[in-house]
């Protein structure tokens, strides 16, 4: 048994150790995968099987897409999905716009006010205002019950700016000098040199931002009183969690009976799906890219 991961000097592993290790890994993976299996199975099972089983199904005997039909035909959930997608797309675009511009604007040492502005950005890593003052600010600006309240207040993070800025500073200086000699202005340099060369880091930061916007449930809870405007996470909280837990649930207009177990699970599956879609890209870039660099740096 020779493989690249195991150096020769270590000798042969003991079979007992290998077996124990394999068992541990299988158990760990199972603990993570099992709940997803329950959710997907239950969402695809028929009502009869769920009732017979008492609320969950491990393996549907008969596949039924009834729950998904019901979700996409109902107004409340379907609308919340559209809202979530919209907020995620616009939010990510806006955040990236601010982040990349600021990262480049702060990347040249010795430019006017660069040190001051950089400190202005970095200080926000050390302390932030509490929840209430930000809420009052959003209210003051008349952004309550507007989708912008989900996007703008958290759009700029110093952490993201630092990551993109670090990447831009790694681009060889000669490229910038050459462009400048050829008469390119800052905007031209940004478009023709910085953006094409930092596609990878922009993609990763963008994916993380998108996941954040998609998963956000507290901002809408805080800023949106109008339940018609609620995004998916908040609707899911009402349908799935407060159904089972206790009910200080806000009454949702047009919401009659508690949805069947399968519908709840279908909701969870739908909310998970976009994450699963971008997941391969996230792990690929993340584990070898940004964090490793940060540790060694």
């Amino acid at each position: 048994m020779s493989n690249p991961g195991r150096p020769v000097w270590l000798g042969k592993p003991k079979p007992v150790a290998v077996a124990l290790k394999a068992l541990a890994l299988v158990l760990i993976s199972a603990v993570v995968i099992f709940p997803f299996l329950v959710v997907v199975s239950t969402s695809l099972a028929t009502k009869k099987q769920i009732d017979a089983n008492g609320g969950y199904v491990l393996w549907p005997t008969q596949i039924s897409f009834e729950a998904y039909h019901q979700i996409f035909n109902g107004t409340q959930v379907a609308r919340s999905i559209v809202i979530s997608v919209g907020v995620t797309v616009v939010g990510t675009a806006f955040s990236l716009f601010c982040t990349v511009l600021a990262a480049y604007g702060l990347s040249r040492r010795g430019s006017l006010f660069q040190r001051g502005l950089l400190s202005f950005v970095l200080l926000t890593l050390l302390f932030g205002p509490g929840m209430i003052p930000v809420y009052l600010m959003v209210k003051q600006l008349g952004m309550l019950d507007s989708y912008w309240s989900l996007i703008i207040p958290g759009a700029v993070s110093a952490f993201n700016i630092v990551i993109v800025r670090g990447f831009i500073q790694g681009i060889p200086k000669e490229l910038f000098d050459a462009a400048r000699i050829d008469g390119a202005g800052e905007w031209r340099i940004l478009r023709s040199i910085v953006l094409p060369l930092s596609k990878a880091v922009i993609a990763v930061v963008g994916l993380f931002l998108a996941v954040g916007y998609w998963n956000n449930y507290f901002s809408p809870l805080l800023y949106l009183n109008d339940t018609q405007k609620w995004p998916l996470q908040l609707v899911m909280r009402t349908f799935v969690l407060q159904n089972n837990v206790t009910s200080t649930a806000h009454a949702i207009p047009g919401y009659v009976a508690p949805p069947a177990q399968s519908v709840q699970m279908a909701l969870v599956a739908i909310a998970t799906l976009p994450i699963l879609c971008v997941y391969p890209f996230l792990t690929k870039h993340m584990s070898k890219g940004m964090l490793t660099g940060a540790v060694k740096g």
Binding site: F97, C98, T99, L101, A102, Y104, G105, L106, R108, S111, L112, F113, Q114, L117, F120, V121, T124, F127, G128, P129, G130, P133, V134, L136, M137, V138, L141, I152, P153, G154, A155, V156, A158, I161, G185, E186, W187, L190
Partner: peptide
């Protein structure tokens, strides 16, 4: 450096509005 300052402006304005002014709002 004016273009660089213009580039920093959007992020700086967001931080000013939703971090620094709320800090004063404390």
């Amino acid at each position: 450096d004016a273009p660089l300052l213009v580039m920093v402006a959007p992020a700086a304005i967001v931080l000013l509005l939703f971090t620094y002014i709320p800090l004063l709002g404390s």
